[in-house]
Design a protein around this nucleic acid. Structure first.
Lengths: 233, 233
DNA sequence: CGGTACGTTGAGTCATATCAACCATAGTGG
DNA sequence: CCACTATGGTTGATATGACTCAACGTACCG
């Protein structure tokens, strides 16, 4: 459970212009405003865990969350990240199944929790909302399909190069070119689907080949075309 | 393009009781009836190809279709199968993106093609339909997420055992216990994500361990608990 | 100051890919 | 009817990418 903070109105929320919420009318937004709970979560907190019965979904205002599954031997597999504007947990609400992933906060978050009934009502009464949500799901599904193909066919080296580029696209870099998202070696290995040691060795190979620069968890992309070549993009 | 056959009415279609179509009223069903095109496809035909702009979606009446992506070096990765009652191609219609997978017929098919406008209208005007479709997408997404974790973390041996059990669940067996779906060794390898030779070797290992019996493409499951043990289920 | 989590490096092993040869079957065209 | 070709299946030998295990360094924290 996160910590409750002053409850801001949805009328002033940055997500108001999000494709998903763009089509809501005054009344619908008001309804959400009344029923949502805005909370903060610190780095390391678990928002929900695989197997939990979901009691609504979450809209991320700020921060970064990792979405992962736990494999047979307890090893995490990171499926995706959620950041400002993304929503998580809706899949389980809709399928009415226990959550199939866990979510852990990587960077302190502000998250709005919206009860399940509100989601259902919106889907069934607002066609545009339903359509946008479906678009979102379809996008995720398309990405998942690509991911499957990549993991099945590419080498660890190729996948690491691809993930680095992908992280740059998704989270960007600061002024000096350092990836904004900060991950442990283990987390990187849990995205790529490999052993931590392999990631360490490959990162230092990439560094020797002047593709990246390393400084602890800070990763700077030096040669994007070079990485693309390795990743086969 | 498939071959057109006598156009049956949707009023008598077996898919009428499908969760997705259950909530359609007389008028909506009539509208689909008027606008759908029912076609047959022979084994080996391609219904649509990755990158195609989709001109509607398909509802499978009969037969088996494989849904796959083509990797960098041309190797196929089978993402899923579609059989009676399943629908394919809707993702691209909704995202309004080119198809992200190709589909090839494994067993002669009867397929109804439904134009994109009809899908959109249904989503936006029939909340129950939208909700059921979303459920379907979410189910696929959940399966894709599990698949990612499996491929990333399990060995080829474990995955093959799992796939065999999965094929049994999805397509069943005949009276003698032989899997109803018939796949080439290469197709099996394109599901598991490995080399054809590895599949051949592992299948014959499983056979020696009396887990399965082999006769050409016919695979009989002899020891389901044993396979589950190997698959870590 | 010791403890805990993370990062790094080396050595050895193993699962799986790759390459190559060969067999079986079925369809094709002269 | 036979040679020809294509496709799928099988097996063996060899190479190697990646994992595992183990030791050790580093940094932060109470």
């Amino acid at each position: 459970m996160g910590e409750m903070i002053d409850q801001p109105s949805c009328e002033s929320c940055i997500s108001r212009t999000h494709p998903l919420f763009r089509h809501l009318n005054h009344e619908e937004r008001n309804h959400i405003s009344l029923h949502k709970i805005t909370e903060t979560y610190k780095r390391g907190s678990i928002i929900y865990r695989e197997g939990n019965r979901m009691k609504g979904f979450f809209c991320v205002q700020k921060g970064i969350i990792k979405v992962f599954k736990t494999g047979f031997d307890g090893k995490e597999q990171i499926i995706r990240f959620a950041k400002s504007g993304d929503i998580i947990g809706y899949r389980s609400v809709i399928s009415n199944e226990p959550a199939c992933t866990s979510t852990e906060v990587l960077e302190d978050c502000i998250v709005c929790h919206i009860p399940p009934g509100t989601l259902m009502t919106l889907i069934k009464t607002n066609g545009d909302f339903a359509f946008e949500l479906m678009k979102l799901t379809c996008k995720e599904l398309g990405e998942a399909n690509s991911y499957i193909t990549d993991i099945a066919q590419k080498t660890v080296r190729e996948r690491l190069a691809e993930i680095l580029l992908h992280l740059k696209d998704e989270f960007g870099t600061d002024e000096t070119g350092v990836l904004k998202i900060s991950l442990t070696r283990e987390e990187l290995s849990n995205i790529v689907g490999t052993a931590t040691e392999s990631i360490i060795r490959l990162l230092s190979e990439f560094k020797n080949d002047h593709l990246i620069a390393l400084n602890g968890r800070k990763i700077k992309i030096l040669d994007e075309p070079g990485l693309k070549l390795i990743a086969n993009i």
